[in-house]
Design a protein around this nucleic acid. Sequence first.
DNA 1: GCTTGCTATGACAACGATGTCAATATAAAA
DNA 2: TTTTATATTGACATCGTTGTCATAGCAAGC
Lengths: 342, 342
Amino acid sequence: MKKVTIHDVAELAGVSIKTVSRVVNNESAVRENTKVKVNEAIKALNYKPNLSARNLRGTQTFIFGLLYDNANAYYVVDMQNGLLSECLDKNYELLIRPCDSHAPDIVKQVTDLIHHSRLAGLILTPPLADNPEILDHLKEIELPYVRITSGKAIPGKCEDGIFVDDEAASMHITDHLISLGHKRIAYITGDMTHESSPNRLNGHLAALKKAGIESDPALIINKDYSFESGVEGFKELLELGELPTAAVGGNDEVAAGILYCARLNDISVPGDLAIAGFENSPFSRQTWPKLTTASQPNTEIARRAAQLLIKLCRPDRSPEHDASQHCFIPELIVRGSTTADS
Amino acid sequence: MKKVTIHDVAELAGVSIKTVSRVVNNESAVRENTKVKVNEAIKALNYKPNLSARNLRGTQTFIFGLLYDNANAYYVVDMQNGLLSECLDKNYELLIRPCDSHAPDIVKQVTDLIHHSRLAGLILTPPLADNPEILDHLKEIELPYVRITSGKAIPGKCEDGIFVDDEAASMHITDHLISLGHKRIAYITGDMTHESSPNRLNGHLAALKKAGIESDPALIINKDYSFESGVEGFKELLELGELPTAAVGGNDEVAAGILYCARLNDISVPGDLAIAGFENSPFSRQTWPKLTTASQPNTEIARRAAQLLIKLCRPDRSPEHDASQHCFIPELIVRGSTTADS
DNA sequence: GCTTGCTATGACAACGATGTCAATATAAAA
DNA sequence: TTTTATATTGACATCGTTGTCATAGCAAGC
């Protein structure tokens, strides 16, 4: 079980270490013939390049950073898994870095991370993916990065990234409620400083408009994506007098808060009140009734992000991937919180 | 913003790079005087040793691996955070590695990870922390590791690790139910192949015994820590005829399953049935009613684990930490699923 | 004052890869 | 066939650190 180095591969293949290096890095100017020989040797020895040596010597490192907000525990693990599966495959290392997006020195934290860890590229998740200061800094130092964020891929617009079309998905949710006959539909938003919140709200409003339902401003409550804000938000709705027949939460936690508050007030769900969430968090299947929601394939999203970042880092060397933008539309999942028979 | 290397520090301090290296690594045989000079230079330049170079050259690397099962998403992030805070501080790198504990080739996966990533040490979480094959292998290759697992620290027993005393915590939960007057208390276990399950069950049984309540085998249902198993388990209880007045789930997901099934059958909670869980998962605060549970400080637990591992890896060089074993007792958290007034 | 035996320090090689640049093989052109 | 251009390949330095070993400094013992 000795360490296998590039020298061992070179010897077995009968070439120099530099040639092995070329094959490993998918550089041009290697005869097909020798490439095969080298690849056979690599396989035979189960050779994996030493990351430390690569990072030390190369102009580029093989380290990606993943930046995420501490609070987003639910989907972070899924994203980590997606990134890891791609990174392991392509011999990149993944450095995870939780941080507090509200910290006043957040930009400095990011700067230090990049500098000290010699990152090759960065993957940003919301809300950090939408922080203009961070983005400006990354552009300035020309560090490749991929944003995973809420929005639409805009063909021709020269910004790479992975987009989640919250607006479309949110529209589907409200469409669903409308199709069930609901007309007075409340909406409790997430943190409006996160891109996703206005997008989701807009999708809701668009669906109402499409159906010719006038939206009532009193039914739109601005909150912050937390369970507690769902509880509070619905309490405010209760004080309105006339209750809505349906309520949508900006995410599942808000929806769970609404559900909690409804139960507390003996309002039957979905009988007197239909409730929908967003994100398909694990617990959305564990409430009673289970929450109707929209599901995004976080692992797949992250895998794409990694592929894109690899492409950005080594345009010449990496195999071709599809586009430089990719857009996912979360899928409506209908459960018992909106229809009794689910 | 140029890279600061050991050479810069050496120059500023007026010593050789080797002496700087000695100071950085807390080696002996450096005059107090020079140590101060070097440390000042390090501070002045904000020097951080290059991890790649260290890992490449040294006999030891500065890479820790964290092994966890894919399924344990809830507390993994907390543990990651605790480990990271310690690792960043001590200039270690943390490699995360989700895996499937049921994979037939799990031992080979671990072997390959250690070998290819040149790990300095490994942190194991349940259920991998209790896999004898993995542990044997680690002992054989003499790789330092720390287990975070369910059990008691046994003074004098020469095994290092971080222990969570599930038995004691589980006893507290059942004590709590008994103090509320419950006598027929059902218990739906987690996966009995995980250390934590028998420990938690034993705590429950011990509490019953202490209170002089005979335990009814029909009220103990073997399940697997999932929401669905909670639903199924309670369904089985329903078929018994006479219902228990309280039910404990092996973890919060099982408890949520019980709660779900109770609602489905119009059983009021906590009126007709008190329910308790375990682990203080985020969603245990988001059900209705909120779940009584037991909370373990996962971030702190992980931080301890990292400290311990550092100590194991560099016995001569690291500063002294407390003990080589540490035991945490999860704390009872009483909520509405057991007492109406919470 | 001169060994002796330690402590403190530094010179240098080495870890395993990639970048640079020169050398060789091969194909194309004359 | 010879020359020229181009495609392949390899020798060697190098990244920033630590391990090895040699050397310098200094107190104690004769």
